[in-house]
Amino acid sequence: MGRFSALEWPVFRQLRSGDHLGRGPAVASAKTRATQSRNATADRVVQSICPYCAVGCGQRVYVKDEKVVQIEGDPDSPVSRGRLCPKGAASEQLVNAPGRQYDVLYRAPRATEWQKLDRDTAIDMIAERFVRSRRNTWQETDDEGRILRRTMGIASLGGATLDNEENYLIKKLFTAAGAIQIENQARI
């Protein structure tokens, strides 16, 4: 650190530079002038949509060396006009979280350890269990002969991190499968 000089106090800089109201460069210290944002060194900027709720706020994702370094609101977005809620503003932490999982993990019944599965195997397991549960719990009619055509063995709880289109398709899928217990975390 350099030697201290009282002439570098903001009030003296204001008087020396003619910035008497202290609204210009006189109020910025040398350290402040040398500081630059994380965005300034980004290799590229990618437009995106916030993943947290169905509003669809626009985001600018700043990438350096193929790693996300900052996410900010997109001022060109007609939805959010550059603003983000606290969750959207912190979405860079979602992308770069050190504990983020990149593998499908499965723990068999009564097992004590998790094992990695490839995606296709996991999807096949889920589909097989879904179809079996639907088949075993299907109710065509009630005790009085009224038509039900439903299953009580399948339920869905959607999340607010999905957008409107994804939630719409999930609702249609579960309704077509006969499930009637369909809810969304965003509505609860």
Rank of each mutant, 00 (worst) to 15 (best):
G2V: 13
G2P: 12
R3G: 09
R3L: 15
R3E: 15
E8C: 06
E8P: 02
W9G: 08
V11E: 10
V11T: 10
F12R: 15
Q14M: 15
S17F: 05
G18N: 08
H20D: 11
L21C: 07
G22S: 06
G22M: 09
G22E: 04
R23Y: 10
P25T: 13
K31D: 14
R33L: 15
Q36C: 06
Q36P: 04
S37C: 06
S37Y: 07
S37N: 11
R38P: 06
R38W: 07
R38K: 11
R38G: 01
D43S: 14
V45N: 01
Q47I: 00
I49Y: 03
C50G: 02
P51G: 07
P51A: 08
Y52S: 04
A54M: 09
A54D: 06
C57E: 03
R60K: 13
V61C: 02
Y62F: 15
D65M: 00
E66R: 09
K67V: 13
K67F: 06
K67C: 05
V68F: 00
Q70P: 01
Q70L: 12
D74M: 03
P75S: 05
S77L: 05
S77A: 10
P78F: 00
P78W: 01
P78I: 05
P78R: 00
V79M: 03
V79W: 02
S80T: 07
S80L: 01
C85Y: 02
P86A: 08
G88W: 03
A90G: 06
S91G: 04
S91K: 00
P98Q: 08
P98T: 13
P98C: 04
Q101R: 09
D103G: 02
D103P: 05
V104S: 04
L105H: 04
Y106S: 04
A108K: 13
A111L: 01
R119D: 04
D120I: 02
A122Y: 05
I123F: 12
M125R: 14
M125I: 08
S133C: 10
S133F: 01
N136S: 09
T137P: 01
G145V: 06
R146H: 14
R149Q: 15
R149L: 12
T151C: 05
G153R: 10
G153L: 08
G153Q: 07
A155L: 04
S156E: 05
L157V: 14
G159R: 07
G159E: 10
D163K: 00
D163T: 03
N164C: 09
E165M: 01
N167L: 14
N167A: 08
Y168P: 00
L169R: 12
L169T: 10
I170C: 03
I170S: 03
I170H: 12
L173P: 00
F174Y: 15
F174W: 13
A177K: 03
I180E: 11
I182G: 06
E183Y: 14
Q185N: 09
Q185G: 06
